[in-house]
């Protein structure tokens, strides 16, 4: 448990921005470093709560996943084309992106 105050240095900010794929200026990074530290130190309030043996929850109201039947619904070509055309760069009815290097299949 991080009981001492968290220090967000530039390397940690760079790593986080990179994971989130966000291009940030130096000024933005400096601002967000301060903000994150401040917010996270507020969040440190949580360390006052004893959570030993408490199961973490995802939803306030317990639910179960419902399953649907395996019924395929093919869309008309007109509609699938419409979906692809939402892209700012689609050719041959595919999404064009910068070269993927050494990519997975």
């Amino acid at each position: 448990m991080a009981s001492e105050k968290l220090f967000i240095d530039r390397a940690l900010m760079d790593k986080t921005a990179r994971l989130a794929r966000l291009q940030l200026s130096d000024d933005e990074k400096n601002m967000y470093m301060r903000d994150l530290e401040k917010i996270l130190s507020y969040v440190d309030l949580l360390n006052q709560v004893n959570t030993d043996g408490v199961e973490p929850i995802v939803h306030g109201i317990p639910q179960e996943t419902r399953m649907r039947e395996d019924e395929p619904r093919a869309l008309e070509d007109k509609h699938t084309k419409e979906i692809v055309s939402c892209s700012s760069d689609a050719i041959y009815e595919q999404y064009r992106v910068p070269q993927v290097i050494g990519g997975e299949t």
Partner: peptide, 8 residues
Amino acid sequence: KACQVRAL
């Protein structure tokens, strides 16, 4: 930790 406190 947050998900645990959420349960409380």
